[in-house]
Amino acid sequence: MEIVKQLKLENEEGLHARPAVKLVDTANRFECDVTIEADGREVNGKSMMSVLTLAAAKGTVLNFITRGADAREAMDAIEALIVSKFGEE
């Protein structure tokens, strides 16, 4: 199964260290592949180092692609995290 979803970062920090930790931790809870695409660049959503190289600030629109058996659950969890502004605000 493959799910694609466009999500906008609304939290103040964007994907700075703290939110990135939460995102990577969430992605790693699932078996499926998590890919994040921005500005034509794709990175592995389970890799902290790669996620940081996205340098995604507040307002950035990211394409999330989940692929695998639990792709649906993974996407729901990621969406909930981003919509809740990483539970910080």
């Binding site: 260290a17 703290r18 990135a20 930790v21 990577v24 790693n28 389970k46 902290m48 180092m49």
Partner: peptide, 15 residues
Amino acid sequence: PIFEAHLRMLLDGHM
């Protein structure tokens, strides 16, 4: 949080 981030980077499976 800085150390949390460092740990994630260190344990990054992709890396």
